[in-house]
Computed example of a mutant assay.
Amino acid sequence: MAGFTDTLALAASGMAAQSQRLQHLTENIANADTPGYRRKTVSFEPEMQAGRPTGRVVAGEVTLDPAPLERVYDPAHPLADAEGYHDGSNVDLVIEIADAREAQRSYEANLRMFDQTRDMSAALLDLLRR
Rank of each mutant, 00 (worst) to 15 (best):
A109W: 00
L111G: 06
Q116S: 14
P75L: 02
N28E: 08
R56C: 03
R130M: 13
T7P: 00
D92I: 06
Q18W: 00
E108V: 08
R112T: 14
I95K: 08
R21C: 07
G51T: 09
S43G: 11
F114T: 04
S13I: 01
P68M: 03
T26N: 15
K40D: 03
D87T: 03
S106I: 01
R21A: 08
G51Q: 04
R38P: 05
D81V: 10
R39W: 02
V42Q: 01
I29M: 13
E27K: 09
M113C: 04
L127V: 14
I97E: 08
P66G: 00
N110C: 10
L69R: 10
A100C: 04
R101T: 14
P66H: 06
R21M: 09
M113T: 15
E47V: 15
V94P: 00
N110Q: 05
M120W: 01
D33C: 05
V62R: 06
D6S: 12
E102C: 10
E45L: 14
R39M: 11
G3M: 08
R118V: 03
F114H: 12
R118F: 00
P68W: 00
S106H: 11
G51S: 00
A16W: 04
N28P: 07
L69Q: 00
A12V: 04
Q116W: 08
A109G: 09
D99W: 09
A59R: 05
Q18R: 12
R118P: 07
G36N: 02
D87N: 13
H86R: 05
D33E: 14
I97K: 09
H24E: 00
R129Q: 13
L10E: 09
A98L: 14
P66Y: 06
T54Y: 06
E61G: 05
N110L: 02
I29H: 02
G88C: 03
A16S: 13
L127C: 01
F114K: 06
D92G: 04
Q20R: 15
D74C: 08
P35H: 07
S106L: 06
L111T: 01
T117R: 07
E102N: 13
A82K: 10
E45G: 04
G14H: 02
H86K: 12
A2Q: 11
R105D: 06
K40E: 11
T41H: 11
D87Y: 15
R129G: 15
E108R: 02
D33F: 08
V42D: 07
V57I: 05
N90K: 03
T5F: 12
T63K: 12
A17H: 05
Q20I: 13
D6N: 13
D126R: 14
E83D: 15
E61Q: 12
T34M: 09
H86D: 07
G3Y: 11
R52Y: 08
N28H: 05
P35E: 06
T34W: 01
A17N: 08
I29N: 01
D126Q: 12
E96H: 11
P75N: 04
D74G: 03
E83F: 04
I29P: 05
D115H: 07
E96N: 00
Q104T: 15
L69E: 05
R56G: 03
E27M: 12
M15T: 12
A50R: 02
N28K: 09
L124S: 14
L128K: 13
E27Q: 14
T7R: 10
M1K: 12
Q49L: 14
A50F: 05
T41L: 13
D33G: 13
G60F: 06
A76W: 10
